[in-house]
Computed example of a mutant assay.
Amino acid sequence: MFGELEMVKALLDERKRVVVLTGAGVSAESGVPTFRGQDGLWKSFHTQDLARPDAFESRPELVWEFYNWRRQLVAECEPNPAHHALVELERQIPNFLLITQNVDGLHAKAGSKKLMEMHGSLWQVRCTKCTHAREAREPLPDMPECPVCGHLLRPGVVWFGEPLVAGVLKVAIDQIGRSDVFISIGTSNQVQPAASFYQLAKDHGAVTVEINLEPTPNTGLMDFAVHGKAGEILPELTTGLRESLS
């Protein structure tokens, strides 16, 4: 791992445009459930069956109960060293973008500014009827209503079977296509379109890096792969940059 990490440090010293993609593995180190395996059940329901527009249409009260539980759980979690290291990386690299699949808001809480939450946020709500949308960190009623039109609010996240928010994918593709280094962190590389971002980066000449607890389907296709906890690897990476740039 040491040799790979040193080479990634050298790349970051030399390259000007860096795009980072993060997934559930980063938040798992803060205690946020990944909703896979044993974490994938809630009150005997498979969580992926609740994170769907048809589930919300048929049983909105159940879906909101689930999301209010998630919000309470995440509210007790704090950013970990990986989140803070990415804030430091943003500070050091002028042309930097962090794209996250996570909806917990921990990157923003840590201080990331150049951030794209491609799947939305647990802390956003939007109306099912009108265009009203807002941040809502306060506890919500069991069935929250829109203050503008009175219709039901929904979580401001992208559910399975839904397209990304308009323009988000276009910006992500554009920035990845311009990157010199693309780093995938804490993602299983199984959910599209993010699972194909590394290939887009390679097709445009970027060096690709994987940092993950264990190998993924994309590991053998990456230029560099460093396996272990993101909360241990990323601080080491940014410490090396601080030393080399001082």
Rank of each mutant, 00 (worst) to 15 (best):
residue 116 M to I: 15
residue 130 C to M: 12
residue 125 V to H: 11
residue 114 K to P: 01
residue 57 E to N: 01
residue 29 E to Q: 02
residue 138 E to L: 13
residue 92 Q to S: 09
residue 106 L to N: 09
residue 92 Q to H: 04
residue 70 R to Y: 00
residue 37 G to F: 08
residue 13 D to N: 14
residue 23 G to A: 09
residue 111 G to A: 10
residue 43 K to V: 05
residue 35 F to S: 15
residue 46 H to A: 11
residue 64 W to M: 00
residue 136 A to P: 09
residue 38 Q to D: 15
residue 130 C to L: 12
residue 47 T to Y: 05
residue 61 E to G: 01
residue 83 H to L: 01
residue 32 V to D: 07
residue 48 Q to H: 13
residue 32 V to F: 05
residue 92 Q to N: 03
residue 137 R to K: 15
residue 25 G to P: 04
residue 40 G to E: 12
residue 71 R to W: 01
residue 127 C to I: 14
residue 127 C to W: 12
residue 93 I to L: 06
residue 55 A to D: 06
residue 49 D to K: 04
residue 71 R to Y: 00
residue 65 E to C: 02
residue 39 D to V: 10
residue 54 D to E: 12
residue 67 Y to F: 07
residue 30 S to D: 08
residue 27 S to M: 08
residue 109 K to P: 04
residue 30 S to W: 03
residue 26 V to R: 11
residue 108 A to E: 15
residue 38 Q to M: 15
residue 89 L to I: 04
residue 70 R to C: 02
residue 69 W to A: 12
residue 63 V to D: 02
residue 66 F to H: 06
residue 32 V to N: 10
residue 72 Q to N: 06
residue 129 K to L: 11
residue 89 L to G: 08
residue 109 K to R: 15
residue 37 G to D: 10
residue 10 A to N: 09
residue 76 E to G: 04
residue 49 D to V: 02
residue 72 Q to R: 14
residue 56 F to W: 00
residue 20 V to D: 11
residue 11 L to Y: 10
residue 34 T to M: 08
residue 109 K to H: 11
residue 117 E to I: 04
residue 75 A to I: 02
residue 53 P to M: 08
residue 115 L to A: 12
residue 132 H to V: 09
residue 71 R to P: 03
residue 68 N to R: 14
residue 49 D to R: 04
residue 121 S to M: 11
residue 23 G to L: 09
residue 17 R to K: 15
residue 108 A to M: 07
residue 75 A to N: 05
residue 70 R to V: 00
residue 102 N to P: 13
residue 67 Y to K: 01
residue 119 H to L: 12
residue 108 A to D: 07
residue 104 D to W: 02
residue 137 R to E: 09
residue 74 V to M: 03
residue 92 Q to M: 14
residue 126 R to M: 14
residue 136 A to M: 13
residue 115 L to V: 10
residue 120 G to C: 12
residue 59 R to L: 03
residue 64 W to H: 00
residue 114 K to E: 06
residue 58 S to V: 05
residue 106 L to E: 10
residue 103 V to Q: 11
residue 20 V to A: 13
residue 100 T to A: 01
residue 104 D to Q: 03
residue 94 P to A: 05
residue 75 A to R: 13
residue 16 K to S: 15
residue 79 P to K: 10
residue 15 R to M: 14
residue 101 Q to A: 07
residue 77 C to N: 02
residue 45 F to M: 05
residue 50 L to F: 04
residue 88 E to S: 04
residue 36 R to C: 15
residue 65 E to M: 00
residue 131 T to I: 12
residue 33 P to N: 14
residue 96 F to Y: 12
residue 32 V to G: 10
residue 63 V to M: 01
residue 80 N to C: 05
residue 79 P to Q: 09
residue 85 A to N: 06
residue 50 L to W: 03
residue 103 V to I: 15
residue 20 V to C: 13
residue 80 N to G: 07
residue 132 H to D: 08
residue 89 L to E: 03
residue 24 A to G: 06
residue 104 D to S: 05
residue 122 L to Q: 14
residue 112 S to N: 13
residue 116 M to E: 08
residue 33 P to K: 14
residue 89 L to S: 07
residue 18 V to L: 13
residue 32 V to I: 10
residue 125 V to A: 13
residue 49 D to Q: 08
residue 74 V to Y: 03
residue 33 P to L: 13
residue 117 E to W: 03
residue 110 A to Y: 04
residue 10 A to L: 08
residue 32 V to T: 07
residue 109 K to G: 08
residue 69 W to C: 05
residue 36 R to D: 15
residue 104 D to Y: 02
residue 47 T to N: 11
residue 26 V to N: 12
residue 20 V to Y: 07
residue 104 D to I: 03
residue 73 L to E: 07
residue 21 L to K: 05
